[in-house]
């Protein structure tokens, strides 16, 4: 079943068209990575899904129900983590979750149970200070806790890791992987390593359109292009090596950087053997020979060109 469905969604601010005929669906229990540059329209799209912004055209369905601008009932299925979550600074995390629970209509017993459970998942149990003094990372974690409070079918996270240090980022990703079997996650980001860590499907947004969508593993194999990096001990020989390697027909795009050289090739096995032969014949001492993994970064840069 599709938890989220966007059909022909358009949005413009004045004359500036931000989203132009955006279509995509997110299946239940998947982690959807919503990727795009800064200003590509990720936050705008998420705000439209939550009914915080009016559409200029098209329709959005959450769990089969249509999203209406303003007071939308579909929000009961959604947990939302804004890019910079803002809380009431004079409350403690427990009080804040209690307020959220009361608004969603949980029973007091449930609120207490969920609060305890969630605060321990996000590592804020025993923190009784007021939110005022929290760091960005702590606020982000509390944000996840509040988003998960009503056991949403769809968890929307708007760049949850962008402003965090590596440790904080790892914590957030760990929390998200913990909850992935309970809910469907839509996760926007421009940090591609995060996407590779937890997403199973991705969509790349560029100029208001989804330029690429599908399963991460499939996309990676479609865009697979093997590349090899060779590093020599002797810097002077690298130019000769480049010249000779370019004569091999299946090699393309050789680039030199200091003592190392990177190039693309087809058929790592056969061509690779030829290259090793070449190195042996020339008597070059290799300090490193590396077959590079196709990265999402290359795919991203290619499709948003």
């Amino acid at each position: 079943m599709d938890i989220l469905k966007l059909g022909h969604v358009c949005k413009s601010f004045g004359n500036l068209s931000v989203i132009d005929d955006l279509n995509f669906t997110v299946a239940e229990h998947s982690v959807f990575g919503f990727i795009g540059r800064n200003g590509a329209g990720k936050t705008t799209t998420m705000k439209m899904i939550l009914g915080f912004l009016p559409l200029c055209g098209g329709e959005i369905y959450v769990c089969g129900e249509k999203v209406v601008y303003g007071n939308t009932k579909t929000n009961r299925h959604i947990g939302y983590l804004p890019d910079i979550p803002e809380f009431y600074g004079y409350m403690s995390p427990k009080e804040y979750l209690k307020l959220c629970g009361q608004i969603t209509g949980l029973k007091p017993v449930q609120i207490q149970k969920k609060t305890k459970e969630l605060l321990s998942i996000v590592g804020l149990d025993g923190v009784n200070r007021r939110i005022k003094g929290f760091s960005r990372g702590m606020k982000q974690r509390l944000g996840i806790a509040q988003a998960l409070l009503n056991e949403p079918k769809l968890l929307i996270c708007d760049e949850p890791t962008s402003a965090l240090d590596p440790a904080g980022r790892k914590e957030i990703l760990d929390i998200l992987s913990l909850v992935r079997d309970k809910t469907t996650i839509v996760f926007s980001t421009h940090v591609l390593s995060d996407v590779e860590r937890i997403c199973d499907t991705i969509g790349i947004l560029n100029k208001g359109k989804l330029v690429l969508q599908g399963e991460l593993s499939e996309i990676k194999s479609t865009y697979r292009q093997d590349s090899v990096r060779i590093e020599l001990t002797d810097k002077e020989k690298i130019l000769t090596l480049k010249e000779k390697i370019q004569r091999i027909p299946s090699v393309s795009g050789a680039e030199i950087y200091d003592k190392s050289m990177t190039f693309n090739l087809s058929g790592v096995k056969e061509t690779g053997a030829k290259i090793l032969q070449l190195l042996a014949d020339e008597g070059m001492t290799v300090s490193k020979y590396e077959v590079l993994e196709p990265s999402l970064e290359n795919v991203f840069l290619e499709v948003v060109k």
Binding site: L50, N71, N75, G79, E86, F87, Y88, C100, Q146
Partner: peptide, 16 residues
């Protein structure tokens, strides 16, 4: 202006 209402409204309270 602070955006504190965003969380609360996404919890399903009516704006009225």
């Amino acid at each position: 202006t602070k955006g504190t209402l965003i969380n609360i409204l996404s919890k399903g309270i009516s704006r009225s």
